[in-house]
């Protein structure tokens, strides 16, 4: 069982996020592994662990590889992934990648998955449900389209069937927009998991220590054999025209309830014509 997790290095949502020259500011001190990718890593680790426990693979077999598209600052995200227990971390970095849109991102990640697949077959690609900076949630779908693999999106529950290797089936349950669906597809496949799919583990001390010095593999577009025109600003199908901070809200009106708090609330809504 060889699983690739596509992860993203994003500005920490607990920090002041913003734009400069129409690009997202990515301050080294304030970037982190996209929190929702921890659910993807957890799902991948559990699938490999279950394979080992069932005896389908040996205790040292199976691999979880995290790939991210980022500048060198993005190593922070890979180190975090190492702490959680992933085996390999690959960073795709290239100046030509700046300004990539959804399609460029998916094309680059797909090329990385193909390259990993040349080393040994990839059984599954796992992603989180969204990146907390862009919140588009479309890259998993586009990644599946680029790779020509079945896509099982937004899983709350993941079950891997015990059939023959040639016909192993992944079944998911998802609850989106008030609809509950069960979907299944054969491996290899692309899977995205929600934040309700699992509780990501806490890093152990040994893994934290080992993560500091673990090797990060850096690949360029040339390494991937990818035409720079498909990614970055050159390949983008949208152009950001402006990014402006919203005006701060006015000082709030705060009432401490001494028995009339509810009336004050109702009064606020009514006098502002909000009811």
């Amino acid at each position: 069982m060889r699983i690739v997790v596509a992860a993203k290095y994003v500005p920490d949502i607990a920090t002041e996020r913003g734009f400069q020259d129409r690009r997202v500011v990515r301050d080294p001190g304030e970037g982190t592994l996209n929190e929702l990718d921890e659910n993807a890593i957890e799902a991948a680790l559990r699938l490999v662990e279950a394979e080992r426990e069932s005896g389908r693979i040996g205790p040292d077999d199976g691999e979880v590889i995290v790939v991210t598209m980022a500048g060198p600052d993005g190593d922070v995200a890979l180190r975090k992934a190492f702490q959680l227990g992933v085996d390999r971390g690959i960073r795709v970095s290239d100046d030509a990648l700046a300004g990539s849109d959804y399609f460029g991102t998916a094309a680059v990640l797909a090329a990385a998955v193909r390259r990993i697949g040349e080393q040994a077959p990839v059984d599954l690609v796992v992603t989180g449900m969204a990146a907390l900076d862009g919140l588009g949630s479309v890259v998993p779908t586009l990644l599946g389209a680029e790779l020509g693999l079945p896509v099982l999106n937004l899983a709350k529950k993941v079950e891997l069937g015990s059939g023959d290797d040639a016909e192993r089936v992944l079944t998911i349950t998802r609850e989106i927009d008030g609809v509950t669906e069960r979907l299944s597809g054969p491996l290899p496949a692309v899977l995205s998991v929600t934040d309700a799919a699992n509780q990501p583990r806490f890093p152990g001390f040994k893994l934290i220590m080992a993560a500091r010095t673990k090797e990060i593999e850096a690949w360029s577009l040339a390494d991937l054999g990818l035409d720079p025109a498909v990614a970055g600003t050159a390949g983008a199908r949208t152009e950001t025209l402006s990014a402006t901070p919203r005006p701060e809200r006015a000082e709030p009106e705060i009432v401490t309830d001494k028995g009339e708090g509810g009336v004050a609330l109702a009064d606020f809504l009514i006098r502002n014509d909000l009811v």
Partner: peptide
Amino acid sequence: ICDFAVVGQLADVLPQAAAEI
């Protein structure tokens, strides 16, 4: 980040606001 707030127990404040509305 709010425009208006009540510091208090929601079990008291919400029903009172509902009744007033």
